[in-house]
């Protein structure tokens, strides 16, 4: 259920994103590396989802995730949530870099990242948290 939502979200994200200023960028591009990153993110999504819902983790403006309120996680679990966030961000950074590279334009990475950053927030479910334009946390 969770993974199918994630798949749908990712699919929408990848197919609907027009890249401002770079109309020729193919953000749907699929390479084995991109497929592998997406697979890894999809597997992790089920673990992250409860933390998005509880407000422990929020979406940042730069297309990553961050610990928003550690109090929502039992003390003994905070370290492993740190680890999940670090791994997810490593994948997200790699995804943006790979998509730019697969388009043969590594310099597009920053634009791809900011486009993804906006879309992750647009696709976030109600009740999830994200960083607004001023860097403060807002609840969707």
């Amino acid at each position: 259920m969770v993974s199918s939502i994630f798949r749908a979200a990712l699919l929408m994200l990848l197919s609907l994103v027009p890249l401002a200023g770079y109309t020729q960028a193919n953000i749907e591009i699929d390479t084995p590396a991109i497929a592998s990153i997406k697979r890894s993110m999809q597997q992790r999504h089920g673990q992250l989802e409860p933390y998005y819902s509880s407000g422990a983790i929020g979406f940042t403006r730069d297309g990553l995730i961050a610990m928003r309120d550690a109090n929502a996680v039992p003390l003994a679990g905070r370290q492993s949530v740190n680890g999940l966030i670090a791994a997810e961000n490593q994948d997200r950074n790699a995804l943006y870099r790979e998509i730019a590279r697969a388009n043969s334009h590594p310099e597009w990475e920053a634009d791809i990242r900011s486009t993804f950053g906006q879309r992750w927030i647009e696709l976030a479910r109600g009740g999830w948290w994200y960083q607004d334009g001023n860097g403060g946390w807002a609840k969707k």
Binding site: A70, N71, A72, L75, R78
Partner: peptide, 11 residues
């Protein structure tokens, strides 16, 4: 005890 962010806490 805890700070506001929960990054320094004990139970």
């Amino acid at each position: 005890f805890s700070d506001a962010s929960g990054l320094h806490a004990g139970e």
